[in-house]
């Protein structure tokens, strides 16, 4: 899960297994340090939403904060964490990146256009 909000100084620890990037421990989310001592970069992704979902949430996009590098799967998990009452829906919702459906392991950049394509109903 990549929806962490940061590092608590008092909880800071060193991890020797590299890059990926955080773990959960009770109420604390820790980022693992990279080998060079740096912490992972965070990035903000806007996910466009449409139709009945947009009406239900009264917005046209959802902003999520994830650790870079991120995949589509990370976005699904961050969306689910942000809306726990709809977690099952967001976990499996199809996302399009730059106007094409993207697989769960596809990478996502902060400059990409991401849209949630569910509950469609043309015709």
């Amino acid at each position: 899960m990549t929806q962490s909000t940061g590092i608590r100084t008092g909880d800071r620890r060193h991890f020797s297994d590299g890059l990926h990037s955080h773990s959960h421990n009770a109420n604390t989310v820790l980022h693992k340090e990279k080998d060079n001592g740096c912490y992972p970069l965070r990035m903000t992704i806007r996910v466009l939403i449409f139709g009945s979902l947009a009406r239900e949430l009264s917005c046209k996009e959802i902003t999520i904060d994830v650790t870079a590098p991120a995949t589509v799967r990370d976005l699904n998990q961050a969306l689910a964490a942000k809306h726990p009452s709809k977690a099952a829906f967001f976990q499996s919702a199809r996302l399009a990146v730059n106007h094409a459906f993207a697989k769960p392991d596809a990478p996502v950049q902060s400059t990409d256009e991401v849209a949630l394509i569910e509950l469609v109903g043309g015709g």
């Binding site: 449409f50 139709g51 459906f101 849209a115 394509i117 509950l119 469609v120 109903g121 043309g122 015709g123």
Partner: peptide, 14 residues
């Protein structure tokens, strides 16, 4: 065509 359109094409109706 119509079944797949209703599943996959990003068009919503209200």
């Amino acid at each position: 065509f119509i079944d797949r359109m209703k599943r996959d094409v990003p068009i919503w109706k209200t």
